[in-house]
């Protein structure tokens, strides 16, 4: 019904090729689809008209549950109008709807599949229901103990839980450590699991362990900017200033927009007596930070619910 509503909203205007769009407007999608396809294949028809046709095509395809066709029409729109808010809005709805439909399909087609359990867990995770997500992932692990990636996700969720639980979260951290270790037994190439083990070691004030973990993460994935940054920071805090510079320089080169990386590198240069380099990095920290702040400010202003007409009234 939602797609029918959208169809009625998008009234077509071009005179010579209205029939496919008109049919779509009337909800006669089965008749409309061949005509819409025909328009899209005709190189003589201008893009503005094809935009109307594609929009109608997406909506008809969704009504008829022809997912591949919907994707084709949408792909054309995204290619020709990549920044258009109406197209972006349509894409959000299409993918969201497709996600729901495929989830339902999966549940009906293979209710006993571990993927159903994983999907449930991911849904809980998406909605911030961390304990429920962990429980669901653990069911999955009971059924498929060798499934890679799941211990890692549980470990990440336990860390999230600990962060919001304050003092009562310390048990969750030791559980998280076990999960990351279990993950690495299944998949020794999981750089993120090594990274989080480093985080946990750092939190427990075990800098040597943390450095070793971060080093392993970087060895697996040399372009892992966060791990490089944490490795540099940990070396810096341990007094190995000279060793800290290389990973910090690398993470800055990978993510020059990140102010935290510039700050860490500036600090390393400063402690090495490289004043000019430190000044440059401090300046970059400031400019990248200000850029983020401006974006945040603009975003907050857009969504904050400010009532400008009331601002002068005490």
């Amino acid at each position: 019904m939602r797609w029918l509503g959208f169809l009625l909203m998008a009234a077509g205007a071009f005179a010579q090729e209205t029939s496919g769009v008109d049919l779509a407007m009337q909800g006669r999608c089965e008749e409309a689809m061949p005509k819409l396809d025909h328009v899209m294949l005709d190189p003589a028809i201008p893009d503005a008209d094809k935009r109307q046709t594609s929009t109608a095509g997406v909506r008809c395809s969704m009504l008829l549950n022809q997912q591949t066709d919907a994707m084709s029409f949408l792909a054309w729109l995204q290619q020709h109008y990549p920044e258009d808010p109406e197209v972006l809005f349509l894409a959000v709805h299409v993918f969201s709807e497709l996600s729901d439909r495929n989830a339902q399909h999966l549940m009906h087609a293979a209710p006993e599949s571990p993927f159903v359990v994983q999907l449930n867990a991911e849904n809980f995770e998406k909605h911030g229901e961390i304990p429920k997500a962990i429980a669901e992932y653990r069911i999955l692990l009971q059924r498929s103990p060798d499934m890679p990636g799941i211990h890692y996700r549980v470990g990440g969720l336990l860390m999230l839980h600990a962060a919001s639980a304050g003092a009562s979260g310390s048990g969750a951290l030791s559980e998280a450590q076990k999960e990351f270790e279990a993950e690495l037994k299944l998949n020794p190439q999981n750089a993120s699991a090594e990274y989080y083990l480093g985080e946990l070691a750092a939190q427990q004030n075990h800098p040597a362990e943390a450095i070793a973990d971060y080093k392993r993460a970087v060895a697996i994935y040399p372009a892992f900017a966060d791990a490089l940054a944490k490795l540099g920071r940990a070396l810096l805090d341990s007094g190995s200033t000279a060793d800290a510079i290389a990973p910090l320089e690398k993470c800055v080169s990978l993510r020059p927009e990140n102010p935290a990386f510039h700050l860490a590198l500036a600090t390393a240069y400063q402690r090495s007596g490289r004043k000019a380099d430190a000044a440059r990095e401090f300046a970059l920290q400031k400019s990248t930070s200000e850029s983020i702040n401006q974006n945040t400010k603009a975003l907050h202003k857009t969504v904050s619910g400010v009532a400008p007409d009331e601002t002068k009234q005490p």
């Binding site: 919001s164 951290l173 750092a202 800098p207 600090t267 402690r271």
Partner: peptide, 30 residues
Amino acid sequence: GQAFALFRNAGDSFRYVSATTGIERLSGPY
């Protein structure tokens, strides 16, 4: 959600030690 901050004075400058001293974890909910 932001974590309270503890800085240890190392003489030449300060070190952020909230994570290693447990302050970061303990302060999250407050």
